[in-house]
Amino acid sequence: ETWRFGLEEIEGSVQHGYAEEFKRLIEEKSDGDVTVQLLPYGKWGSDYSTLYDAIQSGSIPIGFGSGFLGGTVPESQLMSLNFVMPEDQLETAKILNSDAFMKSDAWQQAYRNRGLVPLAALPEGYQVWTANREIRTPEDIENLQIRVMDNSLLRATYEAYGASPITIAYGELYSALQQGQADGNIQPVFAHEEMGFYEVQDYMIFAKQSQFVANLIANLDWYEGLSEDQQQMIEETTDELVQIGHDIQSKFNEERLETIKEKGNIEIIELSDEEREQFRELAEPVRQTFVDDVGELGEQALNTLLEQVESATGGSAQ
């Protein structure tokens, strides 16, 4: 049988690297009974919601859902809350993929209510700020016209920091940054490089406030229809892929960062713990906004996640 696997990203991306490993492992474990067919961005369409439609209807049984999944599974916006995940990226990958979180009733139910099953989470690197001015403290970000996706939670987050979030379509973003319609931008490192955004920005700021997380999801009916062995096989595979996925994303983002340093004329800033602390305090009330927006399951998932982070890091290293 053939499992179709829809990616939000093009060939040669982090998602594609992960999916290739997924394909290799599944085809190995199933002794060739299962063939995984990868469908990168463009192969299923060009608007993410059509991918989610295809997963929900089962025509593509497996796929990734990241920042845009919020309209389909509101609770998934948990992944874009700031200062919730640990600072360490591998730690984050482990916690998100732990049974305690991934198998928790709240997280499972949130997806199952929409005909989906969450299988795994793939952190794709920090969400990094760029700006045309130096940013170290909340005073620096005051009134910065920073581009965010048109999404109520992100808007609330950056308003909490004191910035003026502005919405600009992805396709228009480069010109907007170049012409100064927007002063700043938030993307994972690879996107800054891919779209050339770094060419038209002066500073790149690692605040490690959040990571770009892609959720690996499956169609519920399809998943329930799999044999127990096959479900077990998926579970083993996603477990193995926690470390592999982390390696893929770190290598990928490091290479892209090198390119940015080589080609671009951009100053890279890493915030100190004290500086991060100031932003963390401002971000905390936004957790309540999230709970108000998405309701009980979201609150439970948030609490589960916070507990896991607490016990893993002793509450210090966030």
Partner: peptide, 18 residues
């Protein structure tokens, strides 16, 4: 893909800010 997906594609084909 079946005709259900076609409806989704039609919408995303025009439901674009650009």
């Amino acid at each position: 893909f079946g005709p259900d997906q076609a409806v989704s594609w039609m919408i995303s084909g025009v439901g674009s800010w650009v």
